[in-house]
């Protein structure tokens, strides 16, 4: 295998991993606060179509990115209102958000089908970004570097910052956090909004970077892979980063193998692997010593009603 091919493989792998990493980072924070939002796919699609629409209309991809985050956050607020304020079932509401997002993005996108935009510019000078070797470090979309920065930020936030500790406390025991005076609902609203914005950003990666266009269901189910990734990473940001690249490798290596004329395993099997890996990790977590058994936030998915 030549260096050029190896570099290309790494670059497609990183490209496939980045949008699910972005979306999963947001979901990780949401789940750490004790909320399960299954609407990732819907929020990603809303982010994708908004990013494309705004970039196409204004000509500014940066504006498109900001709009995608705002749109993802706005969509997540519907979920937050229903589940946090009205204490609706989180699983059902999250699934509804996904279905809603598919329909809404298709409606908004009607006028953008068949159009194209130039997408995001590189941030490093062309001498580095286009260099045959240098491109493996410098040749990515700005969103790739942003996803790495965000991983570090989320890791720091959850373990080192006061706000992050409060968020985790709420996710582990909302009653206790409430009784010592923290506003459970307010923190969860903020967490869900952050999750929505990150999902929107993940969606924007598809419509501005991966394939600079809009078409119905552009994300083609990647939101579910991002959800699985959070469990796979057992709610740890750095493990999430590794998991995203592993999932990215699973999703793209089969294509490279087949392009090289190598048929190792059936493609259907590889398509199934991210989910299979998640089940295996879940099983391992369940049978591991008690220290790891508590990887999932204790209040995950449970509605909270303030009492007293």
């Amino acid at each position: 295998m030549t260096t050029a091919i190896l570099i290309s493989i790494i670059m497609t792998l990183v490209g496939a991993a980045t949008p699910i990493l972005l979306a999963a980072l947001g979901e990780l924070v949401v789940e750490k606060s004790g909320v399960l939002n299954l609407g990732l796919e819907g929020m990603m699609l809303i982010g994708a179509v908004t990013a494309f629409g705004v970039t196409f209309t204004t000509g500014s991809a940066s504006l498109g990115l900001v709009a995608a985050m705002a749109a993802g956050a706005a969509a997540s607020m519907i979920f937050a209102f229903l589940t946090l304020t009205l204490t609706a079932n989180q699983v059902a509401t999250g699934l509804a958000l996904t279905i809603f997002g598919i329909g809404l993005s298709s409606l908004i996108g009607q006028n953008f089908v068949g159009r194209t935009v130039s997408g995001l510019e590189h941030i490093f000078p062309a001498a580095l970004a286009d260099d045959p070797i240098g491109r493996v470090v410098f040749g990515y979309s700005p969103l790739v570097y942003l996803s790495l920065v965000m991983t570090a930020f989320v890791a720091w936030f959850l373990t080192r910052s006061r706000a992050g500790l409060i968020l985790r406390a709420i996710g582990e025991s909302d009653e206790a956090a409430h009784s010592i005076g923290y506003s459970v609902i307010r923190v969860r609203y903020l967490a869900v909004a952050f999750g929505g914005a990150m999902a929107g950003l993940g969606g924007a990666y598809y419509s501005l970077v991966m394939t600079p266009m809009w078409a119905d269901r552009l994300t083609a189910g990647r939101g579910w892979i991002a959800l699985a990734l959070v469990v796979f990473a057992s709610w740890r940001p750095l493990r999430l980063l590794g998991g995203a690249y592993l999932f990215g490798a699973v999703m793209t290596l089969e294509l490279h193998a087949k392009a090289a004329g190598i048929n190792i395993v059936p493609p259907e099997f590889l398509a199934m692997l991210p989910y299979l890996a998640t089940i295996v990790v879940l099983t391992l977590i369940s049978i591991a010593p008690s220290g790891r058994r508590n990887a999932a936030p204790a209040c995950l998915g449970k509605p909270f009603r303030a009492t007293g």
């Binding site: 493989i9 083609a220 392009a259």
Partner: peptide, 14 residues
């Protein structure tokens, strides 16, 4: 779309 694009890239790499 994402997979179609990645497949095309893999072919071009080869």
């Amino acid at each position: 779309p994402a997979k179609e694009a990645d497949a095309a890239k893999a072919l071009i790499d080869q």
